[in-house]
Amino acid sequence: MSTQASRTAARLMISPAVLLLLGWMIIPLGMTLWFSLQRYNLLMPGMESFTGFDNYTYFLTDPAFGAAIFNTLALVLGVLTITTVGGLLLALLLDQPFWGQGVVRVLVIAPFFVMPTVSALVWKNMFMNPVNGVFAHLAKSVGLQPYDFLSQSPLASIVLIVSWQWLPFATLILLTALQSLDSEQLEAAEMDGAGPISRFVHVMLPHLARAITVVVLIQTIFLLSTFAEILVTTNGGPGTASTTLTYLVYIQSLLQYDVGTGAAGGIIAVILANIVAIFLMRMIGKNLEA
């Protein structure tokens, strides 16, 4: 089926789609690069001029930059840890036969269907609110002082909210991987004298390595751009306690109207994301090879 003519035809026919996708990617990236080299403030229209790398200098020396990098990494690592470990445990639990399994599985997946702004609002107003929140009521009912989650430990609270959203994703992927494990392998391990923990470590975990890799890679991509949860709950505060790189770019371009510095921040974020991706692929990418 793959003659010279058919290959040429195939290339011709997919080229419009490829060109469109390429343009879709190149044009915004090119414009961001261009803006990042311009002095471009929305409060001073018509004053645009070329400034070289000044915008980058401003962004990198911004007092919030260090905190933003730290917060971004803390958010990504925190959520990854909670979701992979929690997802693994939940998947093991849901893999057991029990009454009402089907319903429980749908319920577990449910948080994934709630959009981030809504879930963040629900968490903020109905759970973590120090006056009306469920947690405050629980604390008061046992005579404790209510804890103001979002102002006392804002980053940890956001990690919790985001983890809640991503836990179903990890659970689902790991559960399907777990179900594809040949039961004879587990039985063989049982005959070989492996206890439950040894079976998990020596048979299940290696089988899940690929699925865990997929979960970590996909989540990292999405978690680096976490934004709605921060905007809705803490606005990056108090101070810079929950400002991430994404949020810092938003502050620069849409709160300070400095499009140039914002664009420079965007480029820095792209570079950082690529560095993270390279590290990840180095560390766990070999799991994806068959």
């Binding site: 040949d182 004879e184 039985e187 063989a188 049982e190 004298g193 048979v203 290696p206």
Partner: peptide, 16 residues
């Protein structure tokens, strides 16, 4: 199973 001192060869071989 492990305490019975038996060894089993499975149809699918069940190798790790």
């Amino acid at each position: 199973p492990a305490e019975r001192g038996l060894a089993m060869v499975f149809q699918s071989y069940a190798l790790y």
